[in-house]
Design a protein around this nucleic acid. Structure first.
Lengths: 154, 154
DNA sequence: ATGGGTGCAAATCCTTTGCACTCGG
DNA sequence: CCGAGTGCAAAGGATTTGCACCCAT
């Protein structure tokens, strides 16, 4: 149910309406900040974006609104092991896989239909109904395969 | 290079030797606690296990030793979004996938050769050399598909 | 004696919570 | 006037760090 044809912000408005929650300027500003961001934003990123648009929103409200966005299914929370969470629009068809270089830390996103299909089939075998998934592949990126023979990162 | 035929503790000893680091009783106790644990242990779990064996180890040392274990490649750190990290032996052939029920929170581990092969092939296409990977599939477990039409969890 | 490892406690950092204030109805 | 949403600051938890102490070399 997280996705249909309407623009993200409109969907959020609708969600708020359904839940009998007021669509305050702060909530909309936070939602807009996350929706217009390219990748996975941190709470700090959101605060910065919101501030740039001239809207003052307290940290607590940002966290509370992100929670709403996640509950609404519009946004998804990620934990990349950085010690804090990131948030991103839960676009249907968006990338759900990442290559993480354990040497330089650089990451690259991807997604693949065949892989997705295999995952779905496997889930079906154990009667699990998948909603979405996330794959992290750790290893060495092209550049680091030649340099550093071995290094690690937090 | 994380895996060969030797028992885990022995490999850790070897790693410490290679790095010119002393194999102190605390380090070995922590390593043993993680190696003998069945699943993914938290720092608190480790502290408890170590204490049960009558060895006194400070929290800081547990964290420092876990860091060493991760660097050695023997142990892997996981972040299941619980707000703290878990650690587990990086066994070759161990499960690397998880079904996470977004309704009841229950998880189930798995791994699959075919899937692994597809992942390897995809990585090869972009010249990424995978070392290990982790797949998280979110959705509804068999039980929750019937009850709660929709619920969410942190 | 010397360098490193440890343990304790203080310090950090992200996130949540308590509470008084404000605004719209 | 009332209830909900906010912002601030304090609280909470996990993890890291500073520093004195202790041990093995």
């Amino acid at each position: 149910m997280p996705s249909d044809g309407a623009p993200p912000l409109e969907r959020f408005r609708r969600y708020l309406g359904d839940q009998e929650l007021p669509a305050t300027p702060q909530r909309l500003a936070v939602a807009e900040a996350v929706c217009q961001a390219a990748g996975h934003v941190s709470v700090e990123d959101v605060a910065e974006r919101v501030r740039e648009r001239g809207v003052a929103v307290g940290t607590a409200t940002i966290y509370r609104t992100l929670d709403l966005l996640v509950r609404s299914g519009l946004v998804r929370a990620y934990d990349f092991g950085e010690g804090f969470r990131r948030f991103a629009l839960a676009e249907r068809g968006g990338p759900w896989g990442r290559y993480v270089c354990t040497s330089c830390g650089r990451t690259d996103e991807f997604s693949n239909d065949r892989l997705e299909r295999v995952i779905g089939l496997l889930a079906e075998e154990v009667a699990f109904r998948p909603h979405h998934h996330r794959l992290e592949v750790y290893g060495l990126c092209r550049a680091c395969q030649q340099e550093h023979p071995l290094t690690h990162a937090r």
